[in-house]
Amino acid sequence: MSADATPDDDLPAWSEPFHGDGPGAAPDLGLDHPITREWAYGDGSGRGVRLAVVDSGVDGTHPLVGGVAEYVDVVRDPEADEGIRFELGEHDDLYGHGTACAAIVRSLAPEVEIVSVRVLGADLKGSAFNFAHGLDWCLEHGVRVANLSLSTSNDKYAETFHEIVDDATFARMLLVSAMNNERKRTIPSEYAGVFSVACAPGTDREQVWCNPNGPAEWGAAGVDVDIAWNAHGSITATGNSFAAPVVAGHLARIVGAHPELTVWQARTVLAAVAANAAL
């Protein structure tokens, strides 16, 4: 099977390997009894999986989101310990971006438990600081899969996010991270420890592509896709941001069916069910 869309100058950066001739074959274990989608996904519900959308907040009342189990707002506060405060309780989505991501996840894993971790709020300053603390919160609050449709280009945070990604890996928290739409530093998306995602051709969310050469290791629908937005609306948009939650949804199915999987095991299972597996 090969990717079939025509290369497009307007594609988000890092999406090129998934277009044209595609990324080639996903790694093949050569098993006598290959991993099947039925085994990998179980009932495909994502039941029992706590999945964080680390973003601009989530509108839990949007019909396509289908409810939010828990909200936390990560707020800068110079008076607070470490300069950050965590506000629990329902919040809104100022931009619609997090709502879009949550709805995509829900469409793939209908029984997943969505947690909205808001790190992009009205404060336009220092969002990388909030982002890092939001991930710390996830680590301390039992999140199994975290969708990160945002990144920072700030080198000052490189070490901080390296530590977070390592901690997440050993805590079996799967970090799904959208590559930047520009060809710039993209932290933590470019790290090998995360599931880094760019846009693949088409709009079918059941298809995930594996690019073993990275740094965009996974491809999923994100070009001209219909997504949920503010005010219970929807828009058509393009961006790696909307491909990442597709991968997060597939991973929610996988760890829902196999709760004990490590990060590297989940990566192997996802590659085995990728659209370009066993070419």
């Binding site: 307007d10 988000p12 601009s56 100022l94 931009y95 619609g96 971006h97 992009l120 336009l124 969002s127 945002l150 990144s151 920072t152 280009s153 930047n180 739409n181 520009e182 937005w229 503010n230 005010a231 609306g233 828009i235 948009a237 393009t238 961006g239 941001s241």
Partner: peptide
């Protein structure tokens, strides 16, 4: 513009007037 400033993600919109942003 506020969306791009907040998220750091670039954006291309073809039918801008129909976009709620």
């Amino acid at each position: 513009a506020g969306f791009v400033a907040a998220t750091g993600q670039s954006l291309a919109v073809r039918d801008a007037v129909s976009d709620p942003r």
